[in-house]
Design a protein around this nucleic acid. Structure first.
Lengths: 355, 355
DNA sequence: CTGTTAGCGCCTTCAA
DNA sequence: TTGAAGGCGCTAACAG
């Protein structure tokens, strides 16, 4: 007994013609039946489905795309897949897409390349995808413009201008939450480790978190000194170096708010290297809810990037459905979805030691 | 001055016909010229390329696939994209593919589903990809068989039977290296945290590392007790719980070798929770070279999953080229590439405390 | 070196 | 509810 006794010639590619012939109908009817269109009698549909299953028929995506103009594929544009936020966002988006039979095409590109010319050439996406999901990527105005020129539905995760469908965390609330947590513990001299602003400052998470830190301090009647905020490059080593720089120049700091958990972890390492007790002599808080934050007992403002990825994917699919509907037009402006965050208190924050 | 003054009607899709007409040649010549085939005169090629560029022509992948039978797309089959090894391997593979103009199609699937039926239905990949890259995935024999039935080039990263193209680290050497590091420090009672073996035990990294641990101990004339090896589920919490179980039942253990860094980090957490000093009372070593291992000073046997991903991608592409060549047949058996690892010594391992 | 001629496999009007 | 027919945009024989 062979593995698949029902398939006539194993290895032979079964086409829609084969199914039509075996079911005694036309290919048009097979096409309609297999796509669940209503204008097929129940009996015919069942017969066709049975035959298709028996023959192991799988439609050719190329042929379907060529004929219909739709690819059932989404392009996932991202600078990295191997960083915490990106990996989780991509994972969430891919699963949401697969649930409805859409494919996810991965497009990474080097952020480190020469800033002067665009790093994203979206023309390769033309006719290849039905929509584009931009994952946490600081694009320049020109790059966004070139994406828009593709005339495809577009959605952003984690970052994005407000004239596009965007799913992100509430950076303002998250930044305030972190800063106010430290203020609530009694800290006043609170440093901030931020990240590169990206090319377009108007829609950058680090910029928003930085601003939230400043506002929260002002609301508490604390005047932040210019040197209290330093760049940490959004990774562990950057955070570590930033913390060192900050503590070198401003030893009066008693607490640090880092714009990401990885930078916060770097700050914890820096504190250890300086022989500072965390949280005794230095409190540290981050943003993310990184799985490994627990390793250093990191207090953080947690988000869920996988959920953001999944929601952005669904919004994009809805937008694609709209574009496909002749009369329909989006009435309101582009959707902005802000995901809530929540404070996770561990052992890296405490009241400042009485001096 | 508009953004793209050279494109006749922005938004209009330029087809090969348009290019052919504008260049005064047939579509066949355009096709040949743009694909770099030799049988086109230099003058004609340049003219066609100039016209294509001016019109902003981009070939339709669907039409090309339909006509040629090739998709220039690779399917990346993986259980997760949001775990350290997988994210890095996928990143490496995607970049290697993009370098040569291949697309990466992401296919995740739930490992947690019912074990009794296959979790991978590869039929959706039929006619959609030119080859399949399986990323660190414990597939059952049946699942591998169904993949093979697609009759597509196949390559495995991190795990895979020896009758397939496989890129992985040298699990045996890595396991010995870790164990011998501990032995060399003077440890004798060395526990092991392993991971789920997967469905097919014959090609599983945790099984190989487990075996290497046992052999290394035997070579050092240490008789490992059965209870010295426990399952840690390959994540932080699993590692933590495993370490607790192990230390509950075998307090004589002075060192732990975990089959992954995440489990090793969990073991460090467990040690802290038990008030054990690392490395004073318990040494811990892992395998991976995880970016965040430094947070707990983890000594580890480091690998480079991105490089493995890139190499597997290139081998797969070579295999695809072979399949496309009529006469060619692979002479030797399937290629096995073992990547070397190297010991990274940090502060989680030391000589056992004299008692 | 270049053009002509068939398809690739499916979708989608238009008729029946 | 079904069928016939044309075409989506490109590639690949085969001529010339």
């Amino acid at each position: 007994m062979s593995t698949s006794p029902t398939v006539p010639r194993p290895g032979a590619v079964v086409s829609m013609d084969d199914v039509a012939r075996a079911a005694g109908v036309s290919t048009a009817t097979v096409s309609r039946a297999l796509r669940g269109m209503t204008s097929v009698s129940a009996a015919t549909r069942e017969r066709i489905e049975a035959v298709a299953r028996r023959l192991g028929y799988v439609a050719s995506p190329s042929a379907a795309s060529l004929a219909s103009g739709r690819t059932r594929t989404i392009g996932l544009l991202t600078p990295w897949v191997d960083r915490w936020f990106y990996a989780h966002a991509i994972d969430g988006a891919e699963r949401a897409l697969r649930e409805v039979g859409f494919d996810a095409l991965l497009y990474t590109f080097d952020l480190s390349r020469d800033q002067s010319r665009p790093r994203v050439d979206p023309s390769v996406l033309r006719r290849r995808v039905d929509g584009i999901l931009v994952v946490g990527m600081p694009l320049s105005k020109e790059e966004v413009t070139s994406l828009e020129a593709l005339d495809l539905p577009l959605a952003f995760i984690g970052t994005g201008r407000d004239d596009h469908v965007t799913v992100r965390l509430d950076d303002d609330a998250a930044g305030r939450c972190a800063t106010e947590h430290l203020l609530g513990l009694g800290h006043r001299r609170i440093g901030h480790i931020t990240g590169p602003a990206g090319v377009d400052h108007s829609w950058s998470p680090p910029v928003a978190r930085h601003a939230a830190w400043r506002v929260a301090l002002e609301d508490a009647c604390v005047a932040a000194e210019p040197g209290w905020a330093v760049d940490g490059a959004f990774d562990v080593n950057g955070g570590r170096e930033a913390a060192h720089r900050l503590l070198d120049t401003h030893p009066e700091i008693t607490a640090l708010f880092a714009a990401s958990d990885e930078m916060a972890m770097g700050a914890v390492l820096a504190a250890r290297e300086r022989g500072l007790d965390v949280p005794g002599q230095l409190s540290v808080i981050g943003i993310d809810g990184h799985d490994l934050g627990e390793l250093v007992g990191l207090t953080t403002v947690a988000q869920d990037p996988a959920r953001q990825g999944a929601e952005a994917a669904r919004l994009l699919l809805a937008d694609i459905a709209l574009w496909a509907t002749p009369g329909a037009e989006r009435v309101s402006g582009a959707l902005q979805v802000l995901h809530a965050t929540h404070l996770v208190t561990r052992s890296s924050t405490a009241s400042p030691r009485k001096t």
